[in-house]
Design a protein around this nucleic acid. Structure first.
Lengths: 351, 351
DNA sequence: ATTAGCACTCAATCACTTCGAGTGCTAACA
DNA sequence: TGTTAGCACTCGAAGTGATTGAGTGCTAAT
C-alpha cells in the first residue's frame, strides 16, 4: 500500500464526504493531485478497488469509499492524535449559566451535539455499575397517600404514589423509611426484591405498605438500567440525500423512537475514549448505512456516561470526533461540580 | 344543500381518506351511488366545487375534499353523537397489568394511541392549576450530600443533589425537612421562591442548605408548566404519501422535536370533550396540511390532561375520535385509582 | 512509471408519443 | 325537469428513443 495510494484514497473520501456524489478520476486529478493526470489516478483507483477500499456503483460512475476505507481513514485519524477539542467555547455557549438538573443537562447536551455536528445525537445518563440503594423514603403527600422515593448512587428511581393505611402519620412513615433504609442499604434493586418479602413476613403491621414498596422495586429492577436519554437533531438526518429513500428514513425513525434499543446501541463500556462503528460494524441492520461514533464522560465518583452521534457513513469524522471530545470534557466537568460540590463549593462557601 | 349532495360529498371524503387519490365521478357512481350515472355525479360535483367543498388539482383529475368539506364531515360526526369508545378492550390490552408510574403511563398511552390510529400521538400530563407544594424532603445520599425532593400535588419536582455541611446527620435533615414543609406547604413554587430568603435570614445555621433549596425552587418555577410529554408513532407519518415530500417531513419532525411547541399546540383547555382542528385551523404553518384532534381526561381531583393525534387532513376522523374517547376514559380511570387509591383500594384491602 | 488518446458504458435528461382517467357540455330521454 | 348517453377535450402519467456527458479500461507512446 503505496503512500500515494493513501493520499488518493484520502482525497476520494474527503470529496465524497463533502458531496455525496461518486468521485471520478478527473476530479481528483484537478482538485487534489494536480501533478498527476487522470489516467494515473484511474490506475491507482483500479488498484484501490481491487484492495477493497473503493466501490463502483456501476461501470461508468465514479468510485465511492467502502466501509473498509472509512475504517482506515478513521484509524489513521485516531492514531494521529489530531483530535483537539477546539470547539470548547462554542460548546460552552450552549449551556445556559447554571443548569443543575441532570435531565436538562442531558437534553441540552444532545441539542448542542446535534447542532454542532449536523447529525443525530444521543446522550446517556452516567451509570456504569448496577445501582446500589442508598436511601428509601416514604414522603407524605396527603393523609392517605405517600410517595416512595428510592435513592440509588445512580440517582433517583422515580415517583410512585402508594396508599397509606389509616392512622399512619408522617413520623411513623419516617421511622418505616429508616428501617427500610437500614435493611436495604447497599443492595441492588434485584437483591432488594428478594429481601422485601422476608421483611414483610417479619413485620406484623404495615404489610400493605411494604408490599407496595416491593412492587415498585420490582418495576425498578425490570425497567432496564438506562436513565434518562437525551436525543437531538433527528430531523437533521432527513436533509442528507442518503435518506431521500422513505423506507430507510422510516426505519431510522422508528429505531430512534424505541429508546431502549437506541440506548443499547449507543452505550459504550470499557475505558476507550472513542468508539467508531462504520456501517455493518454497528450490528444493527436498520442503520447498516450509518456510522455511530461514541465517547464517554466520567463523573468524579467514577460513573461513566456515553455520548454519541449517528450519521451517514460519509460522516465528517474528524469534526464529529473533536466535538465529541470537547463535549465529553464539558460534561465531565459539569457533573463533577454537581456531584461533589461539597469539596469545592461547600469548602469555599463554608462559614 | 341537497341531501343527495351530502351523500355524494360524504362518499368522496370516505374514498379519499382511504386512497389519498383524487376521486372521480365514475368511482362514486360505481362504488357508492350505483343508482346514479357518472354524468349526474359530475353535475353534483360541479355544484359542490362551486360551494367550496371540493378542489380540483387540475382539470382532468378527480376531486379532493377541501378543509371546509372535512369541517362539515367532522361536525356532522360530532353532532350525530356516534362516537362510541368501542375499542375499550383493545386499549386496555396496551396497558400492562399494573403501571403506576405517571411517566410510564403517559408513554404507554402515547404508544397505544399511535399504534391504534396509525398516526402520531401526543399525551400530556394532567396539570390544570399551578402546582402546590405538599412536602419537601432532604434525603440523605452520602455523608456529605443529600437529595432534595419537592412533592407537589402535580407530582414530583425532579432530583437535585445538594451538598450537606459537615456534621449534619440524617435526623437533622429530617427535622429541617419538617420545618420546610411546614413553612411552605400549600405554596406555589413562585411563592416559595419569595419566602425562602426570609426563612434563610431567620435561621442562624444551615443557611447554605436553604440557599440550595431556594435555587432548585427557582429552577422549578422557571421550568415551564408542562410536565412529561409522551410522543408515539412519529415514524408513522412517513408512511403517508402526503409526506413523501422531504421538506414537509423535515418540518414536521423538527416541530415534534421541540416538545414545548408541540405541547402548546396540543394543550386543550375548557370543558369541550373534543377539539378537531383541520389544516389551516391549527394555526401552525408547519402543519397546515395536517389535522389535530385532541381530547381531555380528568383525574379525580379535577386536574385535566390532554391527549391528541396528529395526522394528514384526510384522517380517519371517526376512528380517531372513538379511540381518543376510549383512551380518555381509560386514563381518567387509571389516574383516579392512582391518586385516591385510599378510598377504593385502601378500603378494600384494609384489614 | 506516466500520460495521451480512444472506444466503450451507462445513468440521466429531454423531447415525443401514447394512454387513459376524468371533465364539461350538449342533446336526447323519461 | 331531472337524468343519462355520447362526445370532444384536457392533462398527468407512463413509455420510448435519442442525446449527452461523466467516467472507465486499455493500449501505445513518451
Amino acid at each position: 500500500m503505496d503512500e500515494r495510494k493513501l493520499r488518493i484514497l484520502r482525497a476520494i473520501i474527503d470529496d465524497y464526504i463533502l458531496t455525496a456524489v461518486p468521485v471520478g478520476s478527473r476530479t481528483i486529478s484537478r482538485k487534489y493531485e494536480t501533478s498527476l493526470s487522470s489516467a494515473t489516478i484511474r490506475n491507482e483507483m483500479s488498484d484501490l478497488e481491487e484492495l477493497g477500499y473503493l466501490d463502483q456503483p456501476h461501470v461508468s460512475a465514479g468510485r465511492i469509499p467502502s466501509a473498509k476505507a472509512y475504517r482506515l481513514y478513521v484509524d489513521q485519524l485516531l492514531a494521529s492524535g489530531a483530535i483537539r477539542s477546539d470547539t470548547e467555547e462554542s460548546i460552552r455557549h450552549y449551556f445556559s449559566s447554571h443548569l443543575r438538573q441532570m435531565e436538562r443537562v442531558i437534553d441540552e447536551a444532545a441539542k448542542a451535539l446535534s447542532s454542532l455536528t449536523g447529525y443525530t445525537a444521543v446522550v446517556l445518563e452516567p451509570g456504569g455499575h448496577e445501582p446500589r440503594i442508598r436511601n428509601i423514603q416514604l414522603v407524605s403527600v396527603s393523609s392517605r397517600s405517600a410517595l416512595v422515593v428510592i435513592v440509588t448512587d445512580a440517582g433517583l428511581i422515580r415517583d410512585h404514589v402508594v396508599s397509606v393505611p389509616r392512622g399512619v402519620d408522617p413520623d411513623t412513615l419516617y421511622m418505616i423509611s429508616q428501617a427500610l433504609t437500614e435493611a436495604l442499604m447497599g443492595c441492588t434493586p434485584s437483591e432488594a426484591c428478594d429481601r422485601i418479602p422476608i421483611l414483610t413476613a417479619r413485620m406484623e403491621q404495615n404489610t400493605d405498605l411494604l408490599r407496595s414498596v416491593g412492587g415498585l422495586m420490582t418495576e425498578a429492577r425490570d425497567k432496564g438500567s438506562h436513565g434518562h436519554i437525551g436525543i437531538g437533531g433527528v430531523s437533521n438526518m432527513l436533509s442528507y440525500p442518503e435518506y431521500s429513500d422513505m423506507e430507510k428514513a422510516r426505519n431510522f425513525l422508528s429505531l430512534v423512537e424505541t429508546r431502549d434499543r437506541l440506548a443499547q446501541i449507543i452505550r459504550q463500556r470499557g475505558d476507550v475514549a472513542f468508539t467508531v462503528r462504520i456501517g455493518p460494524e454497528t450490528g444493527v441492520p436498520e442503520i447498516s448505512d450509518c456510522s455511530v461514533v461514541t465517547a464517554t464522560y466520567t463523573t468524579s465518583n467514577g460513573r461513566q456516561g456515553t455520548i454519541g452521534v449517528i450519521g451517514p457513513t460519509r460522516m465528517q469524522y474528524s469534526r464529529v470526533l473533536s466535538v465529541l471530545a470537547g463535549m465529553g470534557q464539558q460534561l465531565s466537568q459539569l457533573f463533577d461540580q454537581q456531584e461533589d460540590s461539597n469539596s469545592t463549593k461547600g469548602g469555599g462557601a463554608r462559614e
